[in-house]
């Protein structure tokens, strides 16, 4: 699905990513785990095209994409939910969904906009009830649901989520995670970044641990869980929460 080879990103003299190599398989939830500044967001931003790599290749569905602009990658099926619940907070819930739908879909599909948005409203009635409200007035959890919904309107094959749990109440995190599992069961491939390994391992099939821009450990869920239980990894940046 997605092949990353020797990816290197520098911000001036700082190496944000150093020779990152990954193979993301289809229909799996992949977790990128690491502390603040480990390079999680840079990695996701490079996959979606917001950041240009200094070196390395990214191939998606067998096609080299590192030189394709962001808005075209979106049309190829890469959806990106950025860190920090970024929304057009000065526009209404409905307009956020409309923008999310309209520009990421080919022309012939655009007339279905209202139909698709109404499906979202049916799935998440809270968004339907608040469709004319400014997106910035929603609660954190509602905003996260709105962002993910907007991303889903482009029907991505690969969904990138940058710390979707950050700043959300545990009960809302459960809701978001349940939604991700549903999406996986519909065939979507998901890459999720998390600071808390325990949290990410609840739903992910494969995990990568990122440290100062390098992948230091990778493996399936049971392997990473065993690392976590044996305290083989510093609990400081993995979190002690029980899985």
């Amino acid at each position: 699905m997605l092949e990353i080879k020797n990816l290197q990103v520098n911000y001036g003299p700082i190496n944000a990513l150093k020779e990152v190599t990954m193979t993301i398989e289809k229909n799996k939830i992949n977790a990128i785990i690491g502390v603040n500044g480990a390079g999680k967001s840079t990695l996701l931003n490079t996959i979606s095209g917001l950041v240009d790599p200094d070196q390395g290749e990214i191939s998606y569905k067998g096609r080299q994409i590192q030189n394709i602009p962001v808005e075209k990658r979106v049309k190829l099926g890469i959806g990106h939910v950025m860190e920090g619940r970024r929304l057009f907070k000065d526009q209404s819930v409905h307009d956020n969904l409309l923008i999310g739908f309209y520009f990421r879909n080919p022309k012939e599909k655009r007339r279905n906009a209202l139909l698709k948005i109404n499906e979202i409203y049916k799935q998440f009635p809270i968004l339907g009830n608040k469709q004319n409200q400014m997106a910035g007035t929603l609660s954190g959890g509602q905003q996260q649901i709105l962002i993910i919904s907007a991303a889903l309107l482009s029907e991505p094959d690969l969904l990138l989520l940058d710390e979707p749990s950050l700043g959300l109440a545990p009960i809302i995190i459960d809701e978001v995670y349940q939604l991700l599992e549903e999406l996986k069961s519909k065939g979507m491939t998901i890459i999720i970044s998390e600071q808390m390994a325990a949290l990410a391992l609840r739903i992910s099939d494969v995990g990568y641990i990122l440290e100062r821009g390098q992948v230091v450990k990778k493996g399936d869920r049971s392997y990473l869980k065993s690392l976590l239980d044996s305290d083989g990894l510093s609990s400081v940046y993995l979190g002690k929460a029980k899985v």
């Binding site: 808005e71 979106v74 970024r86 929304l87 923008i99 520009f103």
Partner: peptide, 15 residues
């Protein structure tokens, strides 16, 4: 309006 609010988010939205 979207581009003026957040150009990165706008391009992720396909604009």
């Amino acid at each position: 309006k979207a581009v003026s609010f957040d150009p990165d988010l706008a391009s992720v939205m396909g604009i």
